[in-house]
Structures are given as C-alpha cells and as structure tokens.
Simulated scan of single mutants.
Amino acid sequence: MAWRSSGTSNATLIENLWRNKLITQPLVKSAFLAVDRGHYAPSAPYDDSPQPIGHDATISAPHMHANAVETLLPFLLPKTSAGEKAEGVGDLVGEKGRPRRVLDIGSGSGYLTHVLAELVGENGVVVGLEHIPALKELGEKNMRKSKEGRHSLDTGRVRFRVGDGRKGWSEPKPTISQPGVGGPANGDAEGEVRKDEEGGWDAIHVGAAAVELHEELIRQLRSPGRMFIPVGDGGGWEQYIWTVDKDEKGEIRKERLYGVRYVPLTDAPK
C-alpha cells in the first residue's frame, strides 16, 4: 500500500498512511502530523518514497519512518506513574522513572529526529548522529524552520552531533542550564544510577545499512531497550531490518523482520 499513500500535503500523506494501516497508533499519527515533511525533503516531500538530500544520502520513505517509530514506540514514550496509561497506546507506558534517551544514527535531513522528539516528552532527549558535518548542519537548519523545532533545539531536547554511527554515541550528562533533559539512567526513586548503562539509550534507530549488528551499539542499549537497524552488504536487496531487544536482566534477543534497501552505514565520503 506504500505506493498509494502519497499526498499533496503533510496532512493528506499522514492520513493516507493511516488509512492504509502503515500507521496504526494514534500517538504516532499525531507525531507525524506535527512535523511537516516539507521542511525536510527538498523535492516531492509528500510522496511516499525516498528522496535524495545530497552527499549520497536520502530521506527514507515515510512508510519506513512510520514502521521504525511504531516498532520503537514502547521505548520512546515518557514513563508515567504505575498503572497510568496514555491514550491510544494501551500498556505501552511503563512505571515512573528515568527520562527517555533516543539515538538516531544517520539522522540526515533531521525529519525522523524531530518526529522522535515529539514522542519522548519534555524531559527526554533525542540525539541525531551524522558522519557528514554538512548533514548535521542540514538537520539543524531544517528543524529551525518550525517553532516547535526551534524550541526542541533551544531547550536541548534535540541535539545533532558528528560521529561514526557504527560506534554509537556517548552524550554528556545534563548541565546546570538543562538539568531535566536526558539525564542518566535512574534505577529507583532515590535516583541510584546504574553505572553499566549510565547515559545509554532506550531506543536506537539506525537509518543506514550496517554490515553487522555492531556490538558497541548493543552495549549502549539500556535495560530494557530496543534497536531498529537495517543490516546487509550495503548494496542490492540483501538487506533486512532487525530488531535487537535488551531486557531488564540484560539478556539480548535479535529478530530479523523484512527485506529493505538502504544506503550503507560507512565512512564519510572523501
């Protein structure tokens, strides 16, 4: 149904994705409606297809972004008091605890980084990681096209960084000026920090095809945490989306989902 989901505006694109059941969660629909893809795709922004953004990179098709968000959703939503449920998500919201931290590797245009920020709550943080400085700057520039994007950047809820995505990222602890945004992992109500996952990530999204399930990325997952990553040879159709889950005890479960075609997760072009 992806080819039938294109629209003439952001609203019609998202409504078509919803109608075709490529978006199924109301909170995900709301997040995508809040972020105008026209600010991020330089051409045909409301087509349900990937678009080039320069530097041999693309902005993925909207239906792929939607699937990634829905797959990661239980690890994106802010946690609330025990037993409380967010509208439209059933049992996805867990006990009150640490702020959400999300890593978007291969952030490119910044579009998905912004959508993720719509879901993590005011105390969460989303880091967009790029190996090409010009794309890191592009993501920031695109986010500043909207009031909501500027607010997320100015408050530190969204941060763009330059680094090798295959090695993950270690984001510094909050500063005095941003004490509540993206803090370390709190093990209990008294704020005990689990040193083995301090500053790790509840969710990791990888937007380029890795040659393997990099152990460093798995290590940086919090317990519990989930990673969404395409894995393959970097070309052709021999690539697959994998999820990697780490449970409360640190046990790892890997699952191959479906075939895809992504640009490779590799060194920056010279």
Rank of each mutant, 00 (worst) to 15 (best):
R19F: 08
A41C: 15
L221G: 03
H131G: 00
V89A: 08
G259A: 14
S152T: 00
N123A: 11
L76D: 09
L257F: 01
M1N: 09
A66K: 12
K141N: 03
S9D: 05
M143S: 13
D247H: 09
G121R: 10
D91L: 12
E190S: 06
D245H: 13
S6T: 13
A86G: 15
G88A: 10
V120N: 06
S49A: 15
I218N: 00
Y258I: 04
E84R: 14
K85P: 02
G139D: 00
L221N: 05
R159W: 01
P174E: 06
R166F: 09
L112N: 10
S9N: 04
T155P: 02
L138P: 00
T113R: 11
D202N: 13
D233R: 12
S152R: 14
N16L: 01
V206A: 00
K29W: 04
L73E: 09
V69Q: 06
P264H: 08
D247E: 07
K136A: 15
T71V: 13
H114T: 15
L221Y: 04
D48W: 12
G165V: 07
E130T: 06
T80I: 03
S5N: 07
D188T: 00
I218C: 03
G236Q: 06
L265D: 02
S109K: 11
R100H: 05
G97E: 11
N142L: 03
P230L: 08
H151K: 15
E15V: 00
G187R: 01
G90T: 01
I14D: 02
D233N: 12
E238P: 00
E171N: 06
E130W: 06
L17W: 04
Y258H: 14
W242G: 02
R144K: 15
A68W: 06
P42T: 12
E118S: 14
S146Q: 02
P26D: 08
E171Y: 13
V162K: 10
V211K: 14
P26T: 09
F228W: 15
S9C: 03
S6E: 11
L213P: 02
V260Q: 05
I218V: 15
P133M: 07
L112G: 05
